[in-house]
Design a protein around this nucleic acid. Structure first.
Lengths: 275, 275
DNA sequence: TATAATAATGACTGATCGGTCAATTGTCAA
DNA sequence: TTGACAATTGACCGATCAGTCATTATTATA
């Protein structure tokens, strides 16, 4: 629905400027040129709107990072990873601002969602670390995870709140160098695996069949008939019946991979089938 | 005034738990066991309260860091610096939470105040970097600054929002190692001095005589007669007339240095007289 | 004890908010 | 052109909030 997208765009602008709590539904609808009532035809509440905004953002980021970590060759990997990070900040500055500064006012449900996605992201970063450095970072793996997560947000303030134009090429190269320096030389580890897993921080996230089916159905909604839609339907069918070979499944996933509404479906399917 | 401190304490608890916007003045006064009207005898508005809370926090942090950077020997410096950082988080977790997550809802005035203090802090960190590494980090100085600032908040979430008990000794040692590693090996610098100063980020902060006098007067308020109070009065007098030698001034500053209400005065005086 | 001065109270105001719903407008098939 | 249906509106509701101020309680003073 176009209406929904319009609201999400205008709302993210206002939220970023004034904060979630300080932006009224009235204001949002005024900026959209519609009445207040119309808002509640697209969303059941203000909370549902912020949830949709944030979920869209995090899902896309996660899917992008996962693709890079699993497909870019080792020499370019760190560079591409940081480049994607900061490009994403520029592209989605408004929503990034909200997530960074407003978690206080989110519902319990939304906070748990964010936590869930954060763990998926940590899993992806750990995969990257293992691909790049293997066993040599066995002890410092989780220290590195925290460093990388911090490098990712290190200059975010400059982009988001100072509107600085950063040279993302040099930035990515310098962060890649820093990461390599630390990975190859750390001797004192702070976060051990035990500690990491101990405190509710388990990195293993189960992806259930029902969850995947749910997201596939969401992707199919409002999509015109096409190869992509048919692939989605077949993939959904296979989750129910499991009749296709893994090669067919993989091919079907390739079909949907580049469709803008299928990023999250692609990611979940790849996780589910462990491709 | 005791009342004011009580309000600040209870309010910081509630703000940290529910957020600034979601905590009503009514709630605060209920937690203090007083009426709503009584609140407005201590503060003119809710904004004045948050300003007082944050200013107290940042001033104390800045004064502490400044002392460490200028007085601890080079071998222990980084370790002590990070230790102080994380001890401070534990001690003032409530206010730290507010500052990290709520800047959206602060007034323009308060945001500018925070920016001002942030620059003082950057100045202190740069001083530390120069003391530790001298000319060898000429080009990467500002990159290091950002790294250190990030190391300082790297594990803050674990303390503030996950209530984890961290081993600050190992933590400080591991962060000191990381800092040294980067300082001694960085070849690609991202933030140049030019760039740093270009964008309204001038690190030089003027401290005016009037500002110092103001803060001295604040420190004197509600202080019983004592050597400390007399020293404060003499220091204030000297700012007006400038009749004491620098040795006397330094001695007077030593007198007030350890009084809990004089941390900020001490810092400003030391900056003003360049001691 | 009487009186003045000060401290503390909480009902009240006006404004804003998220969300609802009866009324209005727009659409389109017959 | 009509009438049935769907989309859209905005006045309205109950709730909450920051801040005020006439009133009351407490303390100091004479």
């Amino acid at each position: 629905m176009v209406k929904k997208q319009l609201i999400m765009e205008k709302a993210s602008e206002l939220f970023a400027k004034q904060g979630f709590k300080s932006t009224s539904v009235q204001q949002i609808t005024e900026h959209c040129g519609m009445s207040k009532g119309a808002f509640y035809l697209s969303f059941n509440s203000k909370d549902e709107l912020i949830l949709a905004l944030i979920e869209q953002y995090i899902r896309q980021a996660t899917a992008n990072f996962d693709y890079i970590v699993n497909n870019v060759n080792k020499e370019r990997l760190l560079y591409d990873f940081y480049q994607e990070t900061y490009h994403f900040f520029y592209k989605h500055a408004n929503i990034a601002k909200i997530i960074i500064r407003e978690t206080q006012y989110f519902s319990e449900e939304l906070i748990n969602k964010i936590r869930y996605y954060d763990r998926l992201n940590e899993k992806i970063i750990i995969t990257m670390i293992e691909r790049l450095y293997g066993d040599t970072v066995k002890d410092s793996k989780f220290d590195l995870l925290y460093c990388i997560k911090n490098f990712m947000t290190m200059y975010a303030d400059l982009i988001l709140f100072d509107n600085m134009e950063l040279d993302i090429d040099i930035l990515s190269r310098s962060l890649a160098e820093k990461t390599n320096l630390l990975a190859n030389n750390i001797t004192i580890s702070f976060i051990t695996e035990k500690q990491f897993e101990l405190l509710n921080y388990k990195i293993d996230v189960e992806i259930t069949k029902e969850e995947v089916i749910d997201v596939l159905e969401q992707s199919m909604e409002e999509m015109e008939e096409s190869i992509v839609k048919e692939s989605l339907m077949l993939l959904k069918q296979n989750l129910h019946e499991d009749k296709f070979s893994i090669a067919i499944v993989k091919g079907l996933i390739e079909n949907i991979r580049n469709h803008p509404d299928c990023e999250w479906s692609t990611y979940l399917l790849r996780m589910y089938y462990q491709l």
